Amino acid sequence: MAQQDDEDKAEHPPQVTVCVIAYNSGPTLRTCLQRLGAQTFRDFEALVIDNDSPDPGDAAIAAEFPWVRLIRNTENLGFTGAGNQGAREGRGRWYVLLNPDAYAEPDWLAKLVEAAGRHPQVASFTSRQMVEGEPGLLDGLGDVMSITGIPYRGGYLNPDQGQAREGEVFSPCGAAMMIDRQLFLELGGFDEDFFCYGEDVDLGYRLQLAGEPTLLVPDATIHHVGSASSGGRKSEFAVFHGTRNRFWVLFKNTPALLLPLVVPLHLASLVLIYLKKDNRPHIRLILRAVAAAFAGAPKMFRSRAAVQRRRKAGLGEISRAMTWNPRDLSGRRPVIRPLRALR
């Protein structure tokens, strides 16, 4: 009977692979999996990758759920390495990434799959994210790229005023995204040099360059704690990797004619941000991150050559996908555009 079950699984792979990457996730992981197990859409497999967490509780929590396939790594591959591992291990047509501190509404997966059915030409989708424990407060409506080269989650920490509508955003947020698994692999998945932070924006930028839009599905909702595994949004880990990786996103992906504009604007914006009183304690850390970004620039420019060879979108399309309005960045305003007609 067990052999027959294995044969059935091989012949009839699930429609969706959901991957949860755990690292010191603790009790948020249990809640995440409880909510995942309550989904109305059932044609999915669930992978939990324990990324060599020093907290042995992560694997024990995942083992409480018999429908979860637990993968235990012997080293921490970062979100990028484990995310690529999940895509290789998965069997679904669609690859879904869900943070261990993200709690899905019961119809979350159903809404993502329904959107894919309505838009068969679209291969990348992102969710409506609310702040867990703060009713009515947005965590994000897809990621936005500003002309300064600083990405942000659209609507982050803004009141939800019903502004969410289905439409294109610059890139998906890795906390709760769905992408065609084969396309993800063909694009090279996440850049493992990033390790953590900014890898979803880098992927989204490569999708843009390849002419592949990302669609916000506003009725596919998760509630996000945020930075539960990395010590908080302003931890040294988050600040260093976030700062370094933002430069790398620009070096790899920005069209050549935009680079002379974007990089100086990015540096100027960074100075303005970290001269603020609350950010001054991080100045030395920021300088180390900038030094690391430029030290890694040659490798990023080598990666850039392969990225630009796959490029299908013109300069105008990439420019329109960004926001040029400084008020969007300062107010973290969502930027959602009507879905373009695809070739």
Rank of each mutant, 00 (worst) to 15 (best):
D5Y: 12
E7I: 07
D8E: 14
Q15R: 13
Y23H: 08
T28N: 15
L29N: 14
L29E: 06
R30G: 08
Q34N: 11
Q34S: 08
L36C: 11
L36A: 13
A38I: 11
A38Q: 09
F41R: 08
R42I: 04
D43G: 09
A46Y: 01
G57E: 08
A60T: 09
A60N: 02
I61K: 07
V68R: 07
R72P: 02
N76K: 08
F79C: 15
T80E: 12
G86L: 09
G90M: 06
R91I: 04
V96I: 13
A104I: 14
D107E: 12
W108S: 10
H119W: 03
V131E: 14
E134S: 15
L137P: 01
L138A: 04
L138W: 05
D139T: 05
D139F: 08
G140V: 10
Y152E: 01
G154D: 09
L157F: 11
N158G: 04
G162K: 08
Q163K: 11
A164W: 00
E166P: 02
F170W: 00
P172A: 07
A175D: 11
M178T: 04
E186S: 10
D193R: 14
E199L: 06
L203I: 06
Q208A: 11
L209Y: 00
E212C: 12
L215R: 00
L216W: 01
L216T: 02
T221C: 14
G226Y: 07
S230Y: 11
K234W: 14
F237A: 15
A238C: 13
V239G: 10
F240V: 05
N245Y: 00
L250E: 00
L257E: 15
S269Y: 07
L270S: 15
L272G: 12
L275M: 11
K276D: 09
P281R: 01
P281W: 05
I283T: 08
I283R: 15
I286W: 03
L287N: 11
L287H: 09
A289E: 06
V290L: 08
A293Q: 01
A295T: 06
A297I: 01
K299C: 04
F301N: 00
V307K: 00
R310S: 05
R311K: 08
A321C: 14
A321T: 01
M322V: 06
T323Q: 01
T323G: 03
W324H: 05
W324Y: 00
N325A: 09
P326Q: 11
R327N: 09
D328F: 10
S330T: 14
R333A: 10
R333T: 09
P338M: 05
L339E: 05
A341E: 13
